[in-house]
Design a protein around this nucleic acid. Sequence first.
DNA 1: AATATTTTTTAGATAAGACTAAAAATATTT
DNA 2: AAATATTTTTAGTCTTATCTAAAAAATATT
Lengths: 217, 217
Amino acid sequence: MVTLSEENYLKAIYHLGNQGGDAVSTNAIAELIDTKASSVTDMIKKLAEKELANYIKYQGVSLTESGRLTAKSVIRKHRLWETFLVNKLNFSWHEVHEIAEQLEHIKSEKLIDKLDDFLDYPTHDPHGDPIPDKLGNYTKIKSKSILNINTGSQGVLISVKDSSKAFLKYLNKNELALGDTIKVIDFEPFDDSFTIETKSKTMTISKNVAENLYLSI
Amino acid sequence: MVTLSEENYLKAIYHLGNQGGDAVSTNAIAELIDTKASSVTDMIKKLAEKELANYIKYQGVSLTESGRLTAKSVIRKHRLWETFLVNKLNFSWHEVHEIAEQLEHIKSEKLIDKLDDFLDYPTHDPHGDPIPDKLGNYTKIKSKSILNINTGSQGVLISVKDSSKAFLKYLNKNELALGDTIKVIDFEPFDDSFTIETKSKTMTISKNVAENLYLSI
DNA sequence: AATATTTTTTAGATAAGACTAAAAATATTT
DNA sequence: AAATATTTTTAGTCTTATCTAAAAAATATT
């Protein structure tokens, strides 16, 4: 039995460690989940005890195969619930994260299977992130941040890296949504801003925004 | 902020104490939620501290208005989620209780409002129990246990008192469902059994079953 | 009314998960 | 390479919710 807290740590290690494979530092985990490093050390020991993580003192943690599967299962639940909230309950994409953080810990295999079916087996959540299947497999659509796209090229906005409320609200305000076709018109070296063109308008975005928008390639 | 555990105690007191109004004994709570009496005493003190319950040593607990509202809000969530699981995810009514026990503690007012809307403002859950509205109000359909219905009378099965898996499975096996019209044909004093008639068949039920079936009157 | 039984409370302990402060190990500077 | 700074771990404390065992109060029985 994996506790709620353990699930959150597994998720953090997975996200920080390049799918859980690379070793992650204690401090990085502490910062991500907003706790103290000493609490992280305690929990890491417990995860290692349960063979969910590999841990060598002073050298960071990585996930075992079992830990990785558990992490992916939690992420699967999180993304399915977000999809439910947006597609069925008409939440806006910036409102769903906190609620999904709670729902992802509900324990029932059958519930998730049925939810998956109810939603018609979605492959991506409302932020464009891939939803792992029952076995933990998923396919990431090939994409590049606008930061790394040549002027003159275009693509479909398929995901956003930053899923914070502030950023999603910015996108809503500026009528940018997943699925939009975006063309990169110009790059201004002075302030690293980009000019982009959508069906409806042309606008300038900061470097900060550009690096968080991923276009299909 | 009310914790998950506190919510469970409030629910227990509400159910045991005639809508939370009557004083409830420590032992009764302990038995219902499967803990020790000493744990109950501890928690009751905390609830009284938070002005969710009225407590006088050795004389049981009752809920304050605030405690009662919180209890009803948890019950509302529980029953809405059960309705969701059965009506939207196609769960059978005997499978949903444990899952709803978890879902009822998810904290988001907006989520419940939207769920309520998505389900078309149901007034009763899959077991026939009334769903309180946002303000805690609900209307109980007038009903009587088959135990107290005269031979020859009939009514619609509107709720079941026992919601245990075993009992619900028994009803499934015998094709008895909410909404069925049932006529009480005969009572056998020797073993307190009843003969009942539905559209499709005539059958005999034990006293134990009869007291758990409620017909509209 | 006195005794026995049951119920409830108190006192003290435990486990999970977090914290602070100090010690130990590793990294970075000079 | 020594000194300094940063990161990580340890040791000890706190809170929440539980438990056991014993004491106190209420109820039941003779």
